[in-house]
Design a protein around this nucleic acid. Structure first.
Lengths: 135, 135
DNA sequence: TATAAACCTATTGACATAGTAGGTAAGTAG
DNA sequence: CTACTTACCTACTATGTCAATAGGTTTATA
């Protein structure tokens, strides 16, 4: 299941993209529009800043803004930033040690194909696609 | 993430399919072959029996067997039986109440398409496909 | 009657998720 | 220089799920 963190982060990114004209968008506004608790949003935006896909500015007139154009973000990137690898099974995690049953495992090809499917899907949709409703 | 329960259950079903000639396969044998704890396997097999995709027989000479031909099981069915609905987000769960943000939610179409993708994938692979290594 | 097997109920430890609380640092406006 | 706004930081908590274990009961066969 896609976590709320990942889902919220997507909505936040969309929200920011839709308010690019304002130089910086304060957290409070996003929280109000998206109906997400300010405190919880803090955590999410912290992750986005850390991952450098948004930039934060403190003080009056501060807030958050995108660091790139909406078409330069993929949905997969945003999701993985907030909830970790999209891998559907432990043995396909990026840092996974090779499973001893590797050779004989009859289900492994299935998970590999599923893994590829997920990645292809999410890494081929950009933030702009989302906003434009085309995908 | 696909749970171990679902992954194990798939392997169990494959194992049973590969030993159809023996009328009933005891849990102990499956556990040994698949290197899964007997106690944990009990839980999984209980679910499979409850879902009527395998049949159990008690007493000496007892064990488990499939109730249909391998080509009549889909992978999706087996997974959902042991770990619940494959829906990637709460608002697409079978019993979910309609979200108030339904209309305005810009991410909903994304989840819907993802949901469809997952279902198409898993419900179009049969146990026989898995065993034959074709998919 | 002994044995092999499924079946049943309960419990545990570890971990992740979703969310809250309170305080600190940085920048702007008066 | 002071007040205000805003991001940023650390810690905590309640809830729930997952993976696994333990011990006992019932059913069938030889």
């Amino acid at each position: 299941m896609i976590s709320t963190k990942a889902r919220y982060s997507l909505r936040v990114m969309v929200d920011l993209a839709q308010h690019q004209e304002e130089t910086y968008v304060p957290l409070k506004e996003i929280a109000k529009r998206q109906k997400i608790s300010e405190k919880y949003l803090e955590i999410i935006l912290k992750m986005l800043v850390k991952g450098k896909i948004v930039k934060g500015l403190r003080g009056k007139g501060g807030g958050y803004r995108l660091t790139r154009m909406p078409k330069e973000y993929t949905v997969g990137e945003i999701i993985e930033l907030t909830e970790g690898p999209l891998s559907p099974v432990a043995c396909l995690m990026p840092d996974a040690e090779t499973c001893p049953r590797n050779e004989e495992c009859i289900t492994l090809p299935l998970w590999k194909k599923y893994n590829a499917l997920i990645h292809d899907f999410f890494y081929n949709i950009t933030l702009e696609d989302l906003i434009a409703g085309r995908f």
